[in-house]
Design a protein around this nucleic acid. Structure first.
Lengths: 185, 185, 185, 185
DNA sequence: TATGAATGAGGCTTCATTCAT
DNA sequence: AATGAATGAAGCCTCATTCAT
């Protein structure tokens, strides 16, 4: 019984490198938005530019990937809060605000993820689905208006990102106003 | 009788040039967002780059000016709708939506105008003041909640711009949701 | 009667710069073929890369221009030798050989000029016309075969360029052989 | 009886790999000239880049090898036509034309093979020898001029490659003209 | 004061070659 | 010996800004 599972490297170096790059990009974007140089990202990830380009053949592709990653996180969070039909949505939006506010520049990218200019497949669908689940129960309980859709919440988040990114005011107020608009009546 | 006509000229050539540049910039930004080249703007304005730089010493300054201009227009509109205490705000936000939606890329710039990253003087104050006036009467009439401030509306507009720019969904719904959140109760 | 012609600058600085770039490119190409870096050309011309790119928006365009220039010179030479119906062609081909041999890398570019992969307008036509003129009289005098066309000579020159560029042998022999093939009978 | 089958294998895997690479390179060069990437060649050959580099330590070495291969083929063809002292040379040059014309990009490489920029050993010698043989008999028969050397024919082929590669005209005419020049008188 | 040519730092991307597995 | 991920030096080109005329 020699631990055979130990044998299968859980992730190859290549995979690990991809993650390092993604992680580094996320960190840099968080600080300065997505106008960071590719070489910066590479340096921060501790790899050569070539490697970076092997993983993400284009600047655009990298940004996309980061956006996807963040969208996935938002989806994940939505699922977490789905258990609380009474206050889930409110807690979710506040949570999103905290995350965005703590991650200067994430909002910059997240807007793209929310937009649908070009059909950006799965992750976006996943996020909308998660939000749909989140408001499903709440709608039954009457916590949110019956006409509210996942797309509505999506737009609110998109707006929230903009508000935070531009420091347009106290984003907590924005969240409360939006929640008010989503409530029945 | 000292050259009266020279006097009469309401605007000097210099002033006229400034306006032509601003106008051209607005038009170009409307089409393609503010990633237009300075030389493009100059060409469209029918002046040399040098002249452009004389009027706006920096790309940044030009964008700022355009943003200011738009902010002024929004302020002007706010004043127009201030006369209607019952539906003024609703009509105003819908109007803003129409304008932003019709002017691809204006939203891009307007977000900056709404934000306060760097305190950008008068125009912003003017806009906030106009909005304050707009909601002042409404608040008295109970059309909007008593706790609603001009800053809140400002944020809603900022969000609206983002929603439109990113085609994040049906912006009319966004407006209605926001209006719902601004109503009392 | 103040020399008014002195007024019209014969060539603007801009035009002069274009020539300097072209000249520099020609010199560098002569040494090392057309795999020189754009920045090298710029430096050699004493201008910034930006200027170079203003004159020739693309590496390709620059090479094209140089090729054109050389083709024009060959055309000019053809016209010069057209006056000698008996030995003009022979003297011309020998002259071309000298020029190509003395200008390492010109042959590299001239091949393109002779080829017709993409219809490269005027200059090529001009060269063919000049060659046609060159062989016209000779054909009448019976110095070259009646079936010989400008295109034939063109091909010979193209081959000559290759022979010289690749140091494939004694190019003077190549010229004599070709001349033999162009003679009547 | 020491593993006889292992012995029998006419070529080791390593040898087979070398051939696969060479074959792939030839095919790719034929399509697109020798500006193909090393990784392309490797992929086409079904081996890793590492293997490719083990066989040909340098891009240059690979091209050289392909050139050699083609030169060997031309030599082989020359020997085949050597049996026909009357029309051998003509048939040979036409044959070479056909081959080059059918193999876009081979001409690109063949020029190098014909050139002697760097003394490139055996194969070139072999080719010159084969051509010498080809014209030897013809010279005796008076089909080609007495002063014609293998080097002359070599140059003609080099030129032919250039003519074809640059689509400089009807290469069949070029061949006929050259043949004319090689004939006695 | 207007012009537009010139500037050159900086950004993105490619690809021959190396090297750890 | 084979593999293919990693490397990073180049190279092409853009564009905000300056400056001579």
């Amino acid at each position: 019984m020699s631990t055979p599972q130990a044998r299968r490297k859980p992730r190859t170096d290549a995979e690990r490198n991809r993650d390092r790059v993604l992680e580094a990009a996320r960190a840099l974007f968080a600080e300065s938005g997505h106008d960071v140089q590719m070489s910066e990202v590479a340096r921060a990830a501790g790899v050569g530019v070539g490697t970076l380009y092997r993983k993400f053949p284009t600047r655009e592709a990298l940004i996309e990937a980061v956006a996807d990653h963040w969208a996935a996180e938002l989806a994940e969070a939505a699922r977490r809060f789905a258990g609380d039909p009474d206050h889930g949505l409110a807690r979710y939006l506040r949570h999103v605000g905290e995350v965005l506010a703590g991650d200067r520049g994430m909002s910059e990218v997240i807007e793209r993820a929310m937009g649908s200019a070009e059909p950006r497949g799965e992750t976006r669908e996943e996020l909308l689905a998660a939000i749909a689940e989140l408001i499903g129960l709440a709608r039954e309980r009457g916590t949110v208006g019956p006409e509210v859709t996942a797309a509505d919440v999506n737009m609110v988040i998109c707006g929230l990102a903009a508000v935070i990114r531009n420091a347009a005011g106290d984003w907590r107020r924005y969240v409360e106003v939006s929640l008010g608009g989503l409530r029945p009546r």
